[in-house]
Amino acid sequence: MRRSRNILAAISVLALVLTACGKSAAPIRVYSGLGPNWYNADLSTLPFADDPGAMAEVALILSQRNAVEGQKYYAFKLAEMAFARSDERRIALAYSRAAYLLAEIEPDEDRMVEIAEKGLAAAEKAGTANKDPEANFYYALNLGLVLKTKGLFALGRLPKLQETLKIAMEKPEQDMGGPLRVLGMLYLSAPEWPQGIGDLEKSLELLEQASTNYPAHPQNHIFYAKALIEDDDPESASAVLQKAEKSAVEEIWGAYYFRQWNEEIKALQRKIQKQ
């Protein structure tokens, strides 16, 4: 009897390990006992659990860049539940946004891709084909994450990314100049002419607009500084980086982006010093 219990326990442990190793959209996280129990909360007990619109609305409130990982996970699950019950545009958009914000901070690449692909599907449902600027923006953000993992095999999909961002540009104010920032960065980092869509001048133009018109977002300055360094203009890049440094504060953007952006800023400053 004791032996069979041991075998059962061993099988359980094995099953747990295999589950943890398998591809699952649900991050395996352990509740620390402090703060909200984001990962194990039973969403079905919420009083608005049968109202997809309300769930999406709450998901949107929780889907903030400065939110902790658990909050982003909770928002994603909430939006996922809402999306499963309704294909309304605003619900699909909320799901796509929640997926992007969670995927971007997910350290496990397989899980990141899985989450971002859900964000892609949601954006498509929200209306990428109808040239909806918001749907196309979230589609581009999620697609960008997926392509980061594809290496060589991503190249063929860069024109698609460019096309969606051009549609997103019809609403440049979303995510504080998000379409300008992302399309500008795509032109900066894509394969250069004549093989690819990379174009330094286009990149500089878009990123200058992002940095000037939407100065509150640190990434607008960071990306613009990168383009200026590429254009052999370290003095201007240095000035732009100062703006980035002042705006990338933890109080606004949270610990994750505060650390990441400040590391990028410091790396760029070192690069300028070497030039």
Partner: peptide
């Protein structure tokens, strides 16, 4: 060195092929 992705792509294409 700056980004010179056009060359880079050719390299990776070589690899793929």
């Amino acid at each position: 060195m700056t980004h010179k992705k056009n060359c880079f792509i050719t390299i990776w294409m070589f690899l793929l092929l």
